[in-house]
């Protein structure tokens, strides 16, 4: 059982320590910590990482919309996105979330649909505009649970096939 005052001791830690804790959480859990105490209200907003795992962008879009809106221009270092289902119409969402240094994106591509690889350099354009210095994007595309393609976009924004 929790010792008395444990929560207060935790709340007394520095922002940077609590943000480190939140960085290990999926974004949905990080957001929920704002209910713990006044101290925690805005912490999730300044956590430099986002993690969203979901069935599909469609299923998560309300969450994504609110999160992106509230975060505004708060800097994000790392963004991990994982969807079981992802298709070409979801690419704009990816663009919204990619003002980051590292984007790791895992998706199970719809069978039969052409991979919108031609559209994806849009992502790197956005990153360039925002001046990410050490950008790397790892895009793992899964088809039926198997890694099909891994694309690495490096500083010069040329996709490299691995």
């Amino acid at each position: 059982m929790a010792s008395a005052g444990g929560g207060d001791r935790l709340s007394a830690l520095l922002d940077v320590v609590l943000e480190h804790v939140l960085s290990f959480l999926p974004s949905v859990d990080a957001v929920r910590t704002c209910l713990l105490a006044q101290r925690w209200r805005g912490l999730w907003l300044s956590t430099p990482s986002q993690r969203v795992d979901g069935e599909s962008v469609k299923e998560c879009h309300r969450f994504l919309d609110h999160m992106l809106l509230l975060r505004g221009h708060a800097p994000v270092d790392t963004c991990d996105l994982s969807f079981n289902d992802f298709s070409k119409r979801d690419v704009p969402y990816l663009n919204l979330m990619c003002r980051v240094r590292v984007l790791r994106f895992y998706a199970d591509w719809r069978r039969g649909e052409r991979l919108p690889v031609g559209d994806l350099p849009l992502i790197t354009n956005t990153l360039t505009r925002h001046g990410a210095a050490l950008m790397s994007i790892v895009l793992a595309v899964f088809v039926q649970g198997m890694i099909q393609t891994i694309l690495c976009f490096l500083m010069d924004c040329h996709p490299l096939r691995v």
Partner: peptide, 15 residues
């Protein structure tokens, strides 16, 4: 914290 309701988180963390 992961996967818990706010009340469960509070109790687990000792609030």
């Amino acid at each position: 914290i992961k996967g818990k309701s706010p009340m469960e988180i509070r109790r687990t963390l000792g609030f």
